[in-house]
Amino acid sequence: MQFEFEVTGGDFANAGTASSQVKKILKQLNVSVSDIKRIVVALYEAEVNIVAHAYSGVVTVEIETTQVRIILKDSGPGIPDIDLAMQQGYSTASPEVREMGFGAGMGLPNIKRNMDVLNISSEVGIGTTVEMIAFLNVA
């Protein structure tokens, strides 16, 4: 099962809309509450990252019985140093992003903690692609 969502850079009012939709879908599919929470928390942080840093992005969510794989591909400035961006506390967020309650350099570490797989590739001046996978806790 696959779903696609568009995310607009700078549109803070709608940041989280995709994550909200995904939460509803996962609930309908009877995914466990704890898996839903870690997936949507990670996705929300990643979605906020697109709104905060990129011009536009597409979120693709692939749901299987054993895993949820999410690809977030954005057109934006890219990340020059991914290791640095992964460090807790490092942030290039604007004052506007901080006013929204983010921008403390916790997003990427938060995503990593919640997902089982996290891959980031980025090209400066082109954009960033984030792949994240959660293996579902199925009985």
């Binding site: 803070f12 989280g16 509450v33 928390v41 006013e99 309650g101």
Partner: peptide, 15 residues
């Protein structure tokens, strides 16, 4: 004291 739509979204994601 953060009174905007993102505080509601955060609560939504975090149950």
């Amino acid at each position: 004291g953060l009174c905007n739509i993102q505080s509601i979204r955060t609560a939504e994601m975090s149950d």
